[in-house]
């Protein structure tokens, strides 16, 4: 086994483990942390595949920023994993879902086996414009894909505005809001007495 294979196996196991644990957790905070673990393992594989820039982006933007956003929301909603999530689905329905996923997975493997790819050339990593480097990706991004890149900027703007509009309270400071605040105030002592 070469060092490449060792790195791949370890990273792959960690990534799959993180993903599986994320689903299995009841506490959403733990889920987020497992997902971050999985993402970092994936980033290692990215780098191994020569995608240096994208791998770093994955760690910084995904594992860093977006996951923190998730955490932030979980904190904001004050979720501790003890929420009432209703009855779990029945055994039959659960079984069906597993079967569907399994079939899907088998199909994917079938497709992958059918793909004939040429042997990848060796990686050259000691040059500034090597495969997957910041410079090389940026060259593509700002020339061939300039237009889609610009559009993502517009998309981000729309997302920001949309998020603000959606999450905003309808009429801040008006009567329903005030009554809601009063009711929470009124409830607070009760909780205190309970505690």
């Amino acid at each position: 086994m070469t060092i490449d294979a060792v790195i791949f196996v370890i990273s792959a196991v960690v990534a799959i483990f993180g993903a599986a644990m994320m689903i299995a957790q009841r506490n959403p905070v733990a889920s987020v942390l497992y997902l971050i673990l999985s993402l970092i393992a994936q980033a290692v594989i990215y780098v191994q595949l020569g995608a240096l820039f994208v791998g770093i982006m994955l760690v910084i933007v995904y594992a860093g920023a977006i996951m923190v956003l998730f955490l932030f929301v979980i904190m904001l909603l004050n979720l501790r994993g003890s929420e009432e999530l209703g009855k779990p689905s029945g055994r039959v329905s659960r079984f069906t879902k597993y079967v569907i996923t399994l079939l899907f997975f088998v199909e994917l493997i079938f497709v992958i086996r059918g793909v004939a790819l040429p042997p990848a050339p060796e990686l050259v990593t000691n040059q500034p414009d090597a495969f997957g480097s910041v410079k090389a990706v940026s060259m593509l991004l700002f020339t061939k894909y300039l237009y889609p890149f610009q559009l993502t900027g517009v998309l981000m703007l729309i997302a920001v505005v949309g998020a603000v509009v959606i999450a905003r309270r309808e009429h801040p400071g008006e009567l329903p809001d005030d009554t809601a605040a009063e009711s929470t105030l009124a409830e607070t002592p009760k909780e205190g007495t309970k505690a």
């Binding site: 995608a51 820039f53 994208v54 982006m57 994955l58 933007v61 995904y62 920023a65 977006i66 956003l69 998730f70 929301v73 904001l76 909603l77 997957g132 990706v137 593509l140 991004l141 061939k144 894909y145 889609p148 890149f149 993502t152 998309l155 981000m156 729309i158 997302a159 920001v160 949309g162 998020a163 603000v164 959606i166 999450a167």
Partner: peptide, 24 residues
């Protein structure tokens, strides 16, 4: 790589809007 970059952007936008909806 560029595609991945674009997918990440979309994911970020989706997270922002989706989480906003969850809050609401």
């Amino acid at each position: 790589h560029v595609m991945v970059f674009l997918v990440m952007t979309v994911a970020a936008a989706e997270a922002a809007v989706g989480l906003g909806m969850i809050i609401t």
